Amino acid sequence: MDAFLTSLFALLIAEIGDRPQILCAALAIRYGRVTPIIWGLGLATLLNCLISALGGSVVNQWISEEPLRLFYALSLLFAGFGMVLWRRPVDLLEKWTLGPFWTAFLGLFILQFGDKGQFILAATAARTDAWAFAVAGGWVGVMLACVPALLLQEKLAEMLPIKSIRYIGGGIFLMIGTAMVLSAWGIV
């Protein structure tokens, strides 16, 4: 259950105001239909979570606990820096003519691949034998972050202090990651 909750909350926080959430809102505005976009988001997220967790489970078998803690700490540090320092622009896929499901599925799969959430999920799965719980928690976390963007679109940005959430969430990731690095190195 620890892997489920850790993945859920970490990915939920990491995705607030991030590119997948923005792309979901843009696709909902563009197509005017949210159901196929939700299905595309769900499938793309599930595949990315599976790839991440399977990669993490392989790492789990190769290295011991202290390097795993360092791997997890680094994933949080990189996520935190990504949340507070910069944000790359989102390609809204305006030239794609595949329809709402395929545009959402392929666009979000590519966008999420190698993103901070994928590294956090891989590191979470690496620290446990219950990688399936990490998949489920990560999937739920991303869906909880992105589905409101599909339903509320630009109103979500008016309702939530997204910039503050990103700074606070990034700061939390940086603090936890720093503490874990110091612990893994035996400093604290």
Rank of each mutant, 00 (worst) to 15 (best):
A28G: 11
W131S: 08
V135P: 03
G137L: 15
A130N: 11
F133G: 13
W139S: 08
R30V: 00
D18W: 14
D91E: 02
W96S: 09
S183E: 10
L74K: 09
L98S: 15
L174P: 06
V135C: 07
R33K: 11
L46P: 04
L182S: 02
A53D: 13
V135R: 01
Y72W: 15
L150M: 10
A10Y: 09
V34S: 11
A79S: 14
I162R: 07
G99E: 07
F4T: 08
K95M: 15
L160H: 09
I16E: 06
L98W: 12
K163T: 07
L43Y: 07
L93Y: 02
F4D: 07
Q118T: 08
V140W: 12
I110H: 08
D2M: 11
W39I: 07
L77I: 09
G137W: 15
K116M: 15
A53F: 14
A25G: 10
G42D: 09
C146W: 07
A145L: 10
L111C: 01
L92W: 07
F109Y: 12
L70R: 06
A125H: 07
L160I: 12
A134W: 13
L106K: 14
G141Q: 02
L76S: 11
A134G: 14
T124C: 10
A126C: 01
I16R: 00
T97K: 14
G17M: 06
L68C: 12
F109D: 08
Q21N: 05
E158F: 09
Q153I: 14
R19L: 07
G138E: 07
L156C: 05
I165R: 07
L8R: 05
R69T: 14
S7I: 09
N48D: 12
S183Q: 15
A79E: 13
N48E: 12
G169E: 05
L152Y: 15
F101A: 02
V135A: 05
A25L: 13
G82K: 03
I63M: 12
L85H: 00
Q112M: 08
I165Q: 04
W96E: 12
G99M: 04
A53M: 14
A123V: 06
G137C: 11
V135K: 00
I38S: 04
T97C: 14
E158V: 11
W96D: 09
